[in-house]
Design a binder for these strands. Structure first.
Length: 849
RNA sequence: GCCGCGGUGGCGGAAUUGGCAGACGCGCAGGUCUCAAAAACCUGUGGAGCUCACACUCCAUGAGGGUUCGAUUCCCUCCCACGGCACCA
């Protein structure tokens, strides 16, 4: 038995003294940036789910280092944001104080899990030396026309008392606190991520990401190809009033169109109100008001009765000259397409439901082989495959051919234009909260009234009076205030502090007002990977307020980025991963970076399950790793976590299974101590052959992140050594311990030191560390077996297994002769004719009778 | 509704290209050691049949069908979990 706590304490301190894991970023010959998603520190500290993710990533980094790479593995804290602030509010400690407490706690815990973090290059998003550049990024976004401010219907979480981005609303609920999200019309800052929709989509196939994550992101971007049809709108007297654009992916059904519906948020409604009578206007206003009073969740409720109001106007369908009444209805969403749809009730269920409510005619324009009758019931509505009818020049075509033909026709006639629309919306970036980087913008009322904009460019035409904080004045420090609690009034805490917001206009020098919202946490994490390698230069920048200082060192960034391997949870598929891609693309286009994709390789690890549920605070099943590290050791816990199942799948956390892992670590220890003691020079051929195979197996498994089977194979090998004398040669032990080193860094280092003392003697130095050793090589020839097992089947059923020389086993005739006469086979072959013999060289023979 | 992933012993899981299903571990049972227990170690462990025993036979990878000499693996239908999107026109 050995004392794991002593060993861990010893090596933690020794590694720290020698800066074992401090990466020299100047050495870029074989660099490897091994990054894992940094944690957001809150509550009780690191939990087993974090440790699972970090350990899996760390094993890969350690393996790469042993394969000769200069591995950089940094860690930091994503400590700004609602999550941390909510916890600070809960326990009644100021977020600034709480941040320091959790920082200390998290770093202490992260020291204990045995990961090879570079402790000289850590970052915290709430550090002014970090967020000055988050603010710099905001300013750059603004300067390039990608940050804008507008009044919009936005998601508001009554629990967190702030607005949320679309991505942070899950099933109508807040991603963080689970409260039902409501809509509010507020002035907010947005990032124009939609400008990159196509690029974000286009680059996805080339990414080495799991198919699941790629699909999730593709779905979120949600590209749809269709056509914008421009209709002439006429009033009761058939007089033209204006144009209206409807988006559709199914123009093939356009001969069946019988109405047009507008979203209640559609801007053309203000024009409509000017061309219709008062009575009608009143009804429309009433309807819009009633819609604004229901929640988005209620509005989207399935099976809800369709509502709407007639505008008194008509769209003219140029295909057949028919007039289609224009309605306003809340089943039409403003955020998709053009916010106006052309209704084809025969071939769209929602359109049918609407037509039912308003007695609008239903026309069939698509038929199937056995159905071309009237559409009178919702189940008759035909949305899929079929052949066109009642559709003029389209008749007889299938719907796909008809769609293309109709688009061609409409474009030729000048009635419409092919377009793509996206589900992706602009990123709502401002938050009416305290614990984040203040948005570095200034609003000047005087300049606003004069219509003065930051630049002449059209992108700024709606942004009169808004100016970014000059670079040299960054960071805009977040002041320490005591009334940091968010209110119900959508007013940011900083807006109550004149000393914060009263500033001079950077343009005219007059009195102006600083923006008092802070930015979304996801902005903090959208660029942190760019910062890490350059952190060695941080001392030079500290406190400096120069104009042209960049968040990173250009030379270092050119060498070290993009990230070589990124490991994290799949739950960030459409949040962090997409925001980071967007920010990187923008920085690339502005000339700051020479790559577009920050994470060409991303590995999505699985989740740790406890009692059948994902480990989370709200479920109350969070497990703190500390107690297990104390009880079983960091090595045993790391091994146990990785042994639960494939790293991509996660697994079920159970205390009892950890005992077994501790037993095995003990067995490895005993095997090592005894082998070093006996100093055996004679090797066992079976153990040696198995070791050669093991070297290959463990290497291949680590590359594939099949850590569970790598560990299983190592267990098999130690079982084999127990059957073969219980000791191994020193060089065999040495190789084995290297294979185990990425998984169990502490105990293997201790064994390595013992081997070193026994074989070489003298003082232990940095170079002697097992984690600096070269990964063992195996002999291809040694993997070949002299004899193999041949499976003997009759009609595909296993009847016998024989051992043969590996060369003979490849000879069909020889194997046939050998197996035909086997005692167990003979009875099957007598009295029948062998119809066929299947032979797989070196593997199997099958007699078909 | 659409898209995606999966279903293997009491449990977590393993199984190159279609070729010995259940590796490895947990749990359980029995044993050694002990006054006793724990720890440690050893043996057994999918189900059924047959046998004093060794052995042998049959059944079994969510259900049903197909392709094949041979299917956990490939194809079709269905069932059940999980993940993403969703009044998206």
């Amino acid at each position: 038995m050995f004392n794991h706590t002593d060993i861990e304490t010893k090596w933690k301190s020794r590694w720290n003294t020698i800066r074992q894991n401090s990466t020299d970023v100047k050495d870029t010959k074989k660099k490897f940036f091994n990054l894992m998603m940094f944690p957001y520190p809150s509550a009780e500290g690191l939990h087993v789910g974090n440790m699972y993710a970090f350990t899996g990533a760390d094993i890969f980094g350690r393996y790469k280092r042993m394969c000769g790479f200069n591995v950089f593995e940094p860690i930091g804290l994503d400590g700004f944001g609602i999550h941390s602030e909510n916890f600070a509010l809960k326990i009644g400690r100021h977020p600034m104080d709480h941040a320091l407490v959790t920082q200390k706690k998290f770093y202490a815990q992260l020291h204990k899990i045995g990961a090879m973090y570079d402790w000289d290059k850590t970052l915290e998003t709430y550090d002014p030396d970090y967020y000055r550049f988050t603010q710099w990024l905001f300013v750059e976004m603004f300067k390039h026309g990608l940050a804008y401010r507008k009044r919009a219907e936005v998601n508001f979480c009554p629990g967190c008392k702030t607005v949320l981005a679309d991505e942070q609303v899950i099933d109508g609920k807040c991603e963080r606190c689970g409260n039902n999200v409501t809509k509010r019309s507020l002035e907010q800052w947005f990032f124009r991520i939609t400008a990159y929709a196509e690029k974000l989509l286009e680059n996805i196939p080339a990414l080495h990401w799991s198919h699941i994550v790629k699909t999730a992101q593709t779905n979120w971007i949600g590209k749809k190809e269709g056509i914008n049809i421009t209709y002439k709108v006429v009033n009761r007297d058939h007089k033209y009033v204006f144009d209206l654009i409807c988006f559709t992916t199914r123009p093939d059904t356009n001969f069946g169109a019988t109405f047009v519906a507008l979203s209640p948020e559609h801007e053309i409604i203000s024009q409509i109100l000017t061309v219709i009578n008062q009575d009608q206007s009143k009804k429309i206003k009433q309807y819009i008001k009633s819609v604004s009073q229901i929640t988005s969740e209620e509005r989207a409720q399935e099976g809800r009765k369709k509502t709407g109001v007639f505008t008194g106007l008509y769209c003219q369908n140029d295909l057949n000259g028919k007039l289609m009444p224009v309605y306003i209805s809340d089943f039409v969403l403003m955020g998709f397409g053009s916010g106006a749809v052309v209704g084809v009730p025969g071939h769209d269920k929602r359109d049918f439901e609407f037509a039912r409510e308003f007695d609008i005619p239903v026309i069939r324009v698509v038929k199937t082989a056995n159905n071309d009758g009237c559409i009178t019931h919702i189940d008759d509505v035909q949305e899929d495959e079929g052949i066109m009818m009642n559709s003029g020049f389209l008749n007889g075509m299938d719907i796909h051919k008809a769609t293309a033909a109709m688009m061609d026709h409409m474009e030729k006639m000048g009635w419409g234009k092919r377009v793509s629309t996206y589900h992706l919306r602009d990123w709502l970036i401002s938050r009416q909260r305290y614990w984040g980087p203040p948005i570095p913008m200034i609003f000047c009322k005087y300049c606003f009234t004069k219509g003065i904009t930051y630049s002449e460019e059209s992108a700024f035409s709606d942004m009169a009076g808004w100016f970014p904080v000059p670079n040299g004045q960054l960071p805009v420090l977040l002041p320490r205030i005591e009334d940091y609690r968010p209110g119900d009034d959508s007013i940011a805490p900083l807006a109550k502090h004149t000393e914060f917001y009263e500033v001079k206009c950077p343009h005219c020098g007059g009195d102006a007002r600083r923006e008092t919202d802070v930015s979304d946490t996801f902005l903090d994490s959208s660029w942190y990977f760019l910062r890490y390698p350059s952190l060695g230069e941080r001392k030079k920048e500290k406190g400096k307020r120069e104009e042209n200082i960049l968040p990173w060192d250009q030379k270092i960034t050119k060498k070290w980025l993009p990230v070589d391997m990124y490991t994290g949870g799949a739950e960030h598929s459409v949040l962090h991963l997409m925001y980071s891609r967007f920010v990187t693309m923008a920085l690339h286009d502005w000339g700051y970076l020479d790559f577009e994709e920050p994470f060409p390789n991303f590995f999505a690890h699985g989740l740790v399950i406890k009692d059948g549920a994902k480990m989370s605070k709200s479920k109350g099943n969070v497990v703190n790793p500390d107690q297990y590290i104390d009880l079983y050791g960091s090595d045993a816990l790391r091994l146990y976590l990785m042994f639960m199942g494939p790293f991509s799948q996660g697994g079920d956390f159970r205390d009892s299974a950890m005992e077994g892992m501790k037993r095995w670590v003990n067995r490895v220890w005993n095997l090592s101590v005894q082998s070093i003691d006996k100093h055996s020079q004679t090797g066992n051929a079976i153990v040696e052959k198995a070791l050669q195979k093991l070297i290959k197996k463990v290497g291949d498994d680590i590359e594939a992140r099949h850590y569970n089977t790598a560990i299983a194979s190592m267990m098999e090998w130690t079982n084999l050594t127990a059957e073969n004398g219980g000791i191994v040669r020193i060089n065999q032990l040495s190789s084995f311990v290297k294979l185990l080193a990425p998984f169990a860094p502490f105990v293997t280092e201790e064994i390595c030191e013992k081997i070193h003392a026994s074989v070489v003697g003298g003082k232990w130095s940095v170079e002697d560390s097992i984690h600096r050793q070269k990964w063992p090589e195996y002999d291809e020839k040694a993997l070949m077996d002299e004899s193999v097992q041949i499976v003997v089947q009759v009609n595909g059923k296993l009847r016998d297994v024989i051992e043969m020389g590996s060369i003979a086993a490849k000879n069909r005739l020889l194997v046939e002769q050998e197996t035909k006469s086997l005692e167990k086979i003979k009875p099957y072959l007598s009295n029948t004719k062998v119809r066929k013999i299947i032979f797989v060289p070196g593997k199997l023979i099958n007699f078909v009778i």
